[in-house]
Design a protein around this nucleic acid. Structure first.
Lengths: 141, 141
DNA sequence: CTTTGTGCAAACACTTTGCAAGTCC
DNA sequence: GGACTTGCAAAGTGTTTGCACAAAG
């Protein structure tokens, strides 16, 4: 695994949570799925690592990791919730409604919009994972 | 109700659907709730208009209206699905993660972003109802 | 040893489906 | 009359909760 062991153990403890194998496995699963891990993908991965872990435990463990801030979750509507390790560079997705292709764009491409919203409404956009529907180059033609 | 009666009756028929009071009531409900009608709001409204209409009928009727194109649905994740009469001017929401306040912004405020995405990726943004998370003016200070 | 976490089963909310009876055309 | 719809009840989903036992600190 790519994350530092001490850090997240301290993180759990400092929030009054205990360190359990189940929680570590769930965290590993999110890591290993990588990128944007859908709930289904995380569950599948956890079950692969240890099939005796209960579904409710997975839900609870994910809540804990989100609570302590090591994992961030975003609800993408149709696609359900996706989990990822906090600190990954923010980015967004362009999803083609015709062919389903997914383009990834960097967060800073939103800066003009972000500046505009802040200037006009005082609203600070804090989206680290948007999914924007539309038509890709191939399907638009 | 604000919609033309003939139009949507023809619309149903032309798609091979029958005109039933239940379907009309569901359509009315979406109209009356106005703007973005959450599923819950639509259901509540329908029940108010005629409490004998079954939940399954409401779901099926909404599917029919979406199918014929008179109603559009967007899945807003956390907030669930919202329904609205097709043809309303497109716009988007800024949702404050701290206080829950919702700001509505016009679609054309996205034009710079839209142009950028089209120029750089050939991607045509087709979002008529985005929800962007962030912090509102009051909470950001 | 005390407190927290787990697995299990049951409860839950939300949505869909099968079917007989009713309705639209 | 014949096909489509409805209401009802039941079955699915996906997620949460209560509780006795197990594990962490």
């Amino acid at each position: 695994m790519s994350h530092e062991e001490k850090d997240y153990i301290q993180l759990l403890r400092s929030h009054g949570y205990r360190v359990t194998p189940q929680r570590l496995i769930v965290l590993d699963a999110v890591c290993e799925v990588g990128g944007h891990a859908t709930l289904g993908a995380v569950i599948a991965r956890v079950k692969m690592l240890d099939s005796t872990i209960d579904l409710s435990t997975i839900y609870r463990a994910l809540d804990v990791w989100v609570e302590v801030g090591l994992v961030v979750v975003s609800d993408m509507g149709e696609q359900g919730k996706v989990y990822k390790i906090a600190g990954d560079s923010a980015h967004h997705h362009l999803i083609c409604q015709s062919c389903g292709k997914v383009l990834t764009i960097r967060d800073d491409e939103f800066n003009p919009l972000l500046d505009h919203l802040q200037a006009k409404y005082g609203f600070i956009l804090r989206a680290d994972h948007l999914s924007l529907p539309g038509l890709c180059h191939d399907c638009a033609g």
